[in-house]
Write a protein that binds this DNA or RNA. Structure first.
Length: 590
RNA sequence: GGGGUUGUAGUUAAGUUGGUGAUAACGCCGGCCUGUCACGCCGGAGGCCGCGGGUUCGAGUCCCGUCAACCCCGCCA
C-alpha cells in the first residue's frame, strides 16, 4: 500500500544547485523510456517536468514499478537529485535528474483517448469530452494561470482605487430589451420565472443610489444567443460603476485597469488609447471595433461617383442610403490572382453585398472591372485614395450597412492573408459617441444601441420625442483592442424624468416601464448620484493576453457552439416529478 | 433560421475515374535492450469507414437525408 508523502519540490523546481538533495516528487508520467537496464520517466506537474532515472542503483521494487509505469500514471518518486551525464539544454530542469530509490504508483489510468501534449491535434469534441485531460496540457494550464493573474490584478487595482466588490443576484427577473434570457422556474410561485442576468446593470446602478460610490464585480453573465469563436452562453465581466463620474473619469479608471493588467500579466505597457467617434470609426474602418494594428483604411467615394455612368455603382447610389467606399491594398496588383479576387467577392457577398469591384493599378492604366470608369473618375479616385502603380483597389457600392459590413470583413481578411498584422502588438482605441437608438425594422420601433439606461449626450436630450431620435448620440464608450471590443460602458441616466422619456422613445409606455424597470425608476427618485460605469469582457481580454482566437482556450469548462457541455452532458433531461414540482410541462415532442 | 468545412482503429491521417485482402504513424498488449529525452528493435491485438436510406453486379468512394464538432451570416441592449 502506497503511503502518500509530502512532496519536497514541484516537478519544475530541480536545478543544479539542488544536487545531492533528497527529494520527493509527485506527478504524472509525461514520458516513459524503458531501455531495459535503465528506465527514464519524465514526471510532470503544472510547474514543469523533471527526469527520473531508475537503474541498477535503485532497489528492485523501484525498478519493477518504473518498468510497469505508463503514460499519465500518477507516481510518487523519492530519490536524490544528481547532475546528468548528458544534460538536456531544452529543459529548464535539464541539468539534473532524480535518481530514484523509491517509485510508487498513486494512480493508474485507462487507455488515453488522446495524447497529453501541446502539439496534440485531436478533434475538439474529443478534447471537450475529456476536458480534464485536455486541461493537463501545459498550454491550457498556462492560460488558466494567465486568467487568474488578470483577475487578481483587476481586484488589487480596483481595490487600490477605492472600489468595493459587491455580489449581485444570479436569480433575478427577466427584462425586455437585449439578449434572450436564460430562465429558471420558481417552485414557490407557480408560473413565475427568474432570469439569469445578462449583466448586473440595474443592480449596480441601484448600488450607486445606495451610496456604494465605487462598485466592481468579477461576475458571470448569461445570454441565450447563438455562439461564435469569441462568445459563450455564460461569460465573465469585470463590471464596475462609479458615482459622481463623467466619462473622463470612467475612461481614466478603465485605462488604469488595462495598463495594470497588461503590465502585471505580460510585462507590456498598454497604450496609447486614442479616441475615435463612432462616426469616424465607421467612416475609416466600416465597423465600431476596428483592428488598428494595420492600415487599409476605407475611403468614401459616394460624392465623387455621384452621377457616374458605371451602371452598378450608379444603381447602388440611387437607392436611399446607398454609398460607395473603397480601400487600397498597396503593392497587391501583381500578387493577387483572379481566383483570390473571386474568393474575396464571395466573402463580401456573405455580408449582403452584390459583389466586389476592383482594379489593378498598373503603369498609367487600370485593369479589372473598374477600368470601365471614365478617365476623370479614375484619376479622381486615384488621387482620393492615393493610388500608385502596383496597387490593388477594392470597391463596393450598396446600402451603407452592407458596404460597411462587407468591406470591414474584407479589410480584416486581406490583412490576414497578406500578413499585414504585426504579431505581439496591442493596439487600443476608444470608440465614443454612439448613436443612442437604431430603428428595428422587424419590430418597427426604436431600440437602444447600448442599453436603455445610457445617457444621451446632454445637448441631445431635447431631441427625445422630437421624431429625430436617429440624431441622438449617447455618452457611451467602448474600449477596443486589436479589433475586439474588450469593454463597453456609459454615463447613466440619473434623472427619472429623462429615463421615462427614453423608455417612451423605445415605445415602452409608462405602465410597461413601471412593470419592467419600476424598481430602478423608483430608486432613481430617491437621490440618485450622477454615475457611470464600464464592463470588461474578461474572457476576451484573457484571449488577447494568451494570444488565442478561441474563447474555449481561456475557460476551464466551456460549451460547444450548440451550448452543450460535452463533459457533463449539460443540458440534460430531468424527471417528470422535478418538472411537476416546478409547475412546468415539456412542450418538446419526443 | 441560413451558408461553409470536417467526420475512416483509442488518436491523427492516407485511401486514385466505384473493383480482390481497408493502410500508415502514434498509442495499447507481449518480448528484447544500461544514458534516453519523438529512445531503438521484434511480434500482436484493435474497424458500425458518424448514422439512415438510395443508385449499382459491387459503395469508405456516387446521390439524398440526418446527426455532431468547428467557422461565418442572422442574432448577441
Amino acid at each position: 500500500m502506497t503511503t502518500l508523502a509530502r512532496r519536497t519540490h514541484t516537478c519544475g523546481e530541480p536545478r543544479a544547485r539542488h544536487s545531492g538533495s533528497r527529494v520527493t516528487l509527485q506527478g504524472w508520467v509525461d514520458a516513459h523510456r524503458d531501455l531495459g537496464g535503465v528506465v527514464f520517466m519524465d514526471l510532470r506537474d503544472r510547474y514543469g517536468i523533471t527526469q527520473v532515472t531508475v537503474d541498477h542503483r535503485s532497489p528492485p521494487q523501484a525498478r519493477q514499478a518504473a518498468a510497469a509505469a505508463r503514460l499519465e500514471y500518477v507516481m510518487q518518486i523519492r530519490g536524490t537529485i544528481i547532475p546528468r551525464e548528458k544534460p538536456n539544454p531544452d529543459m529548464p530542469t535539464g541539468q539534473v535528474e532524480v535518481l530514484a530509490d523509491s517509485v510508487e504508483l498513486l494512480s493508474s489510468t485507462l487507455p488515453l483517448p488522446f495524447a497529453i501534449s501541446d502539439d496534440c491535434n485531436a478533434n475538439e469534441d474529443t478534447r471537450l469530452r475529456y476536458r480534464f485531460l485536455d486541461l493537463r496540457r501545459p498550454a491550457l494550464q498556462e492560460n488558466l494561470l494567465t486568467r487568474h493573474k488578470a483577475a487578481l490584478t483587476a481586484r488589487l487595482y480596483l481595490d487600490s482605487q477605492g472600489f468595493t466588490e459587491v455580489e449581485t443576484p444570479v436569480l433575478t427577473r427577466a427584462t425586455p430589451e437585449g439578449a434572450r434570457d436564460y430562465l429558471v422556474p420558481s417552485r414557490v410561485h407557480p408560473g413565475s420565472w427568474y432570469a439569469l442576468p445578462q449583466s448586473p446593470q440595474i443592480f449596480k446602478q441601484i448600488l450607486m443610489v445606495a451610496g456604494a460610490d465605487r462598485y466592481f464585480q468579477v461576475v458571470k453573465c448569461f445570454r441565450d444567443e447563438d455562439l461564435r469563436a469569441d462568445r459563450q452562453p455564460e461569460f465573465t465581466q469585470i463590471d464596475m460603476e462609479l458615482s459622481f463620474a463623467d466619462r473622463e473619469l470612467v475612461m481614466e479608471i478603465a485605462q488604469g485597469l488595462t495598463t495594470a493588467i497588461w503590465r502585471q500579466v505580460l510585462g507590456v505597457e498598454a497604450g496609447p488609447f486614442p479616441r475615435l467617434s463612432y462616426h469616424q470609426a465607421m467612416s475609416r474602418y466600416g465597423c465600431d471595433a476596428p483592428d488598428t494594428r494595420f492600415g487599409l483604411e476605407h475611403h468614401d467615394l459616394t460624392q465623387l461617383l455621384q452621377g457616374t455612368a458605371f451602371r452598378i455603382i450608379a444603381g447602388a447610389l440611387e437607392q436611399e442610403g446607398g454609398i460607395c467606399k473603397a480601400f487600397l491594398v498597396p503593392g497587391a496588383a501583381g500578387s493577387t490572382s483572379r481566383k483570390t479576387l473571386d474568393s474575396w467577392t464571395e466573402l463580401v457577398r456573405t455580408h449582403g453585398l452584390g459583389g466586389l469591384l476592383w482594379a489593378k493599378v498598373v503603369q498609367g492604366k487600370w485593369t479589372g472591372p473598374l477600368a470601365r470608369l471614365g478617365q476623370q473618375e479614375r484619376s479622381a479616385i486615384a488621387t482620393s485614395v492615393d493610388a500608385t502603380p502596383g496597387d490593388l483597389l477594392l470597391l463596393a457600392a450598396g446600402p451603407a450597412s452592407r458596404v460597411h459590413a462587407g468591406l470591414s470583413a474584407l479589410r480584416l481578411h486581406v490583412a490576414r492573408v497578406r500578413e499585414l498584422i504585426p504579431r505581439d502588438q496591442f493596439s487600443f482605441c476608444w470608440i465614443t459617441d454612439f448613436p443612442a437608438f437604431e430603428f428595428d425594422e422587424g419590430q418597427q420601433r426604436w431600440v437602444a444601441v447600448h442599453h436603455p439606461f445610457t445617457a444621451p449626450l446632454p445637448q441631445h436630450v431635447p431631441l427625445l420625442g422630437s421624431g429625430r431620435e436617429h440624431e441622438i448620440l449617447s455618452d457611451a464608450y467602448d474600449l477596443v483592442c486589436n479589433g475586439h471590443e474588450i469593454a463597453g460602458g456609459s454615463v447613466r441616466i440619473h434623472d427619472p424624468q429623462v429615463q421615462s422619456r427614453v423608455f417612451h422613445a423605445l415605445g415602452l409606455d409608462r405602465r410597461q416601464a413601471e412593470e419592467k424597470f419600476g424598481f430602478l425608476l423608483e430608486a432613481l427618485r430617491y437621490g440618485a448620484p450622477p454615475h457611470g460605469g464600464i464592463a470588461f469582457g474578461f474572457d476576451r481580454c484573457v484571449m488577447l493576453l494568451c494570444g488565442t482566437e478561441n474563447i474555449r482556450d481561456v475557460i476551464a469548462f466551456p460549451k460547444t457552439t450548440s451550448a452543450q457541455d460535452l463533459m457533463s452532458g449539460a443540458p440534460g433531461t430531468v424527471d417528470a416529478a422535478q418538472l411537476a414540482e416546478l409547475h412546468v410541462t415539456n412542450a418538446a415532442s419526443g
